[in-house]
Amino acid sequence: MKKIKEIIVVEGKDDTAKVKQAVEADTIESNGSAINKETIEQIRHAKEKRGVIIFTDPDAPGERIRAIISEAVPGCKHAFLPKDQARSKFDKGLGIEHATIEAIQDALVSVYELTEKTGTEITKSDLIAYGLLGGARAGYRRDRLGELLNIGKTNGKQLLKRLNMFHISKQEFEQTMEVLIQEEKDE
């Protein structure tokens, strides 16, 4: 079982239990969106000592928690789980606790550090040229690109910022878009 050096921030006890089935790691639970000052301080301390990976559910509350922590504790790493890999087979549940061990391991291997980068090679024109802004399939393409790059789901406004923050190179972006386009042709 792979050992993770950083402390993983999850939303609750069920997430902790599932992560510990997949990897050897310590966790901090945010207790959902009721994240308080004490938890933020605990995360800040963990980041200074060992580093932190934020691993929240792929839904609106999970993204809100991720944003709160990222703003309060800059420099955390991020792991993303695509929605289709976080759905319960038995009910309408969505979350890390419903993912397979393999999906969690894959997400934790593809960790990104959010940092501001200036002079990125990817432009809004690139997004338009690849049909990621405007158009009938733009939403699908953004979602699929987020899955393939492990950067999470974004809307049109967020996509360029997230590509820049994760330091996705223009070459990696173009190669991933070619994969996506080929998938569409094969449908």
Rank of each mutant, 00 (worst) to 15 (best):
V19K: 10
G62P: 02
T56M: 14
C76S: 08
F80R: 05
M177K: 09
E183Y: 13
Q171R: 15
V111K: 08
Q182R: 15
K161A: 04
V111W: 06
S110N: 15
Q158P: 01
K3L: 02
S110I: 00
V109G: 02
K161L: 11
P61L: 08
Y112N: 15
I104W: 06
P58Y: 02
S88R: 09
V19F: 02
I68D: 08
L127V: 00
R64V: 06
A22V: 01
T115W: 05
Q171C: 04
H45Y: 11
A136N: 10
A67T: 12
Y140F: 06
E97Y: 04
G12K: 07
D14V: 00
I54F: 07
E184W: 12
Q105H: 03
I65K: 13
D126H: 08
M177P: 04
S88G: 02
E29G: 09
C76V: 15
I43H: 14
I69P: 01
K92M: 04
E187H: 12
S110P: 01
K157G: 01
K13D: 15
E113V: 10
I43E: 13
E97C: 04
F80S: 05
I53F: 09
S30E: 09
G152W: 04
L108G: 14
G12P: 00
R50T: 12
K89S: 11
I69V: 15
I104G: 03
A86M: 02
A60M: 14
